[in-house]
Amino acid sequence: MTKRLLQGNQAVALAAVKAGLDFYAGYPITPASEILHELVNKKTVKVLQMEDEIASINAIIGSSLAGAKSMTATSGPGFSLMQESIGLAHMMEIPLVIVNVQRVGPSTGMPTFPAQGDILQCKYGSHGDYFPIVFYPNSVAELYEFTFNAFNASEESLSPVILLSDSYVGHLYETIEETDYPISKRTLAPLGTSNRHFTGLTHADSKPATSDPEVHKKFIKHLEAKQKKVSKKYNNYEYIENKDSDTLLIAYGAMSRVAYDFKEDFAIYRPVRIFPIVEKIKAIAKKYKEIVVMEMNTGQYANEVERLLHREVKLLPILGGKIDLKEIASKLRRIKKKK
């Protein structure tokens, strides 16, 4: 095992190669470009720089169907462009990995300050119902590990898996150990072996079935059950208990690194698989009177947690990409006093 000093984005690229990445298509965008830069120098990976993010995701849909383990990386604006085809990949049941290194939005926003504004876009970005598996690590070592998990989960669930990051974690340098994690094998037979028809239309037995509501209901149920089953293998979260506190502070990604500074006063819960939400949060939340979600958006994850727990969740939005410890401390104090 070797130790290496790596940037977050580099760690993703390195882990992807080790996880068996064959094909990468991407479009340059700060703060995700380093993944593209890193991969063009790898001999085992075919890298294609496309004309836009739409072409990128569609190219990897094609390559994945043809039997290659495929990935693309982008940031918020590109991720928005990809949404339609992410829906297609769910519909066709294609294994893919999409890395989204978030930056401040909407639109061009503040290039390229960190933000966590794509949380709901991961889950609801494309039209129709689908149930994505989303990971959001908070360190370089975790980015490395969860790139393996993202590939494995995508192969097991035959669906596009999203690996979230942000320009803070993506550009962070840390020392990591280069571990070889287990790799799941491809189960989808490549193109050119049969007479299957892959379509974005509602289908049964690889034939379009666009007039039968029952077929569609069954298909959506199948998608949900499949994702639930696979995600059970990846119940990743971090929980720092604090018996002296009655408040649970929920944070993930870059913000969770800030949250560690408050572990004296709060219990801390950090989801890593952010979607589907790890059920464990229900049991943990019961132990605390107050729940505060600290995130770099106006409460995207807080609302999801609130919906799951059926109880009030307080927000601490950190906007504009500026993380000021003093400011956050005073805001947290105010929230604590209010109750």
């Binding site: 064959d22 094909f23 298509a25 075919k46 294609l48 496309m50 739409i54 072409a55 990128s56 569609n58 190219a59 990897i60 849909i61 094609g62 390559s63 994945s64 169907l65 043809a66 039997g67 290659a68 495929s70 339609e84 085809s85 829906g87 297609l88 066709m92 193109l191 050119g192 072996t193 049969s194 007479n195 299957r196 028809h197 892959f198 379509t199 974005g200 239309l201 379009p208």
Partner: peptide
């Protein structure tokens, strides 16, 4: 084996298949 892609994206999908 055939692929029915989203609107307008047949070419990048075909390119991905061919290159893979």
């Amino acid at each position: 084996d055939s692929v029915h892609t989203v609107h307008g994206r047949a070419l990048p999908v075909a390119e991905g298949i061919k290159l893979a």
